[in-house]
């Protein structure tokens, strides 16, 4: 099971490239795709999901070019788009039965699978109600269920936790971890904690280009000894932001507890702390310039 992306590019209009010179080789596991808004994540997802064709380069699924034969991949693909709709007059069961039919899953197998998935996404109680009355989070969970209907070998989820409440977010992260095994899961998000919890490999993307690909542990090593924490008076924060990457601030009675990425100690009181992925992500993106 191998997904190969080679010199992939997508051009919009005459002058704008949403993605350019993108190379990636993926095997089973959860791949977290991180990047700021407009970095090109959704463009990449849509090309991988055969929704749009690359302007240049190619994508191969087990050696087969998916631009030439998209159905090879579609048969084993589960896709949750960032922005999608449902048919409001169908219930969740009926919608999933419809999706199962157009994915070519037999009626009996589909029925069993749908029951399981509705339990998994915590919609069993609301399964018979029209989707038009669902909240945004519930629709998102229907989307997750449809993506898993065909037991996909390649599961692409684009900003899947948008609209989910904290409990459902945790549930979804756990689900992704449980499903990882003999399948490739691509999780695209700009929420670092989602990736931190599940990804076995992280790809950071900015301005339509890949700027880093590594295991989370390797990424964390990049900033060992470069993350600092200390308390500053609140009025000093704007000046600090001008000179350093501030990855977080917490209010304390003495002032603000700031967390800064810097090669050397930025202040006498600064203490080195263990880096987290948020620090790494901000560092990588800021080195590469802000999003488009």
């Amino acid at each position: 099971m191998k997904l190969t992306i080679d010199h992939l590019g997508k051009q919009y209009g005459r002058h704008f490239w949403g993605l350019r010179d993108f190379d990636l080789e993926l095997g089973p596991g959860v791949i977290g795709l991180l990047g700021p808004n407009g970095a090109g994540k959704s463009t990449l997802m849509r090309m991988l999901a055969t929704i749009t064709r690359p302007t240049e380069g190619f994508i191969q699924w087990n050696g087969v070019d998916i631009a030439g034969s998209p159905n090879t991949l579609r048969a084993v693909l589960g896709y949750l788009p960032q922005d999608f709709g449902v048919y409001p007059n169908l219930s969740a069961v009926e919608f999933l039965e419809y999706m199962a039919a157009i994915k070519g899953i037999g009626a009996r197998a589909a029925r069993r699978r749908i029951d399981e998935l509705l339990q998994v996404v915590n919609l069993a109680d609301a399964a018979k109600r029209p989707l038009g009355g669902y909240s945004g989070g519930m629709k998102q969970r229907v989307g997750i269920a449809q993506a898993l209907l065909n037991d996909p070998q390649l599961l692409i989820v684009d900003e899947p936790t948008v609209g989910l409440d904290p409990e459902e977010r945790v549930r979804f992260r756990n689900l992704l971890s449980d499903l990882a095994g003999e399948r490739i899961i691509i999780l695209s998000t700009h929420i670092v904690s989602d990736v931190e919890a599940t990804a076995t490999e992280i790809v950071v993307i900015n301005k339509g280009r890949k700027i880093q690909q590594a295991a989370p542990e390797q990424l964390l090593k990049l900033l060992e000894g470069q993350v600092w924490q200390w308390i500053v008076p609140s009025p000093d924060l704007p000046a600090l932001k001008q000179t350093h990457i501030v990855s977080s601030t917490l209010r304390r009675s003495e002032g603000l507890l700031v967390r800064v990425v810097s090669e050397s100690a930025p202040a006498a009181a600064a203490q080195a702390v263990v880096p987290n992925l948020e620090d790494v992500y901000l560092h990588l993106v800021s080195q590469n310039g802000v999003g488009q």
Binding site: T50, I51, R74, L80, D83, G85, G104
Partner: peptide, 12 residues
Amino acid sequence: HNTRQIVFSTPH
């Protein structure tokens, strides 16, 4: 109903 992406990414 904005289901193009999920319908069009199914086989055939």
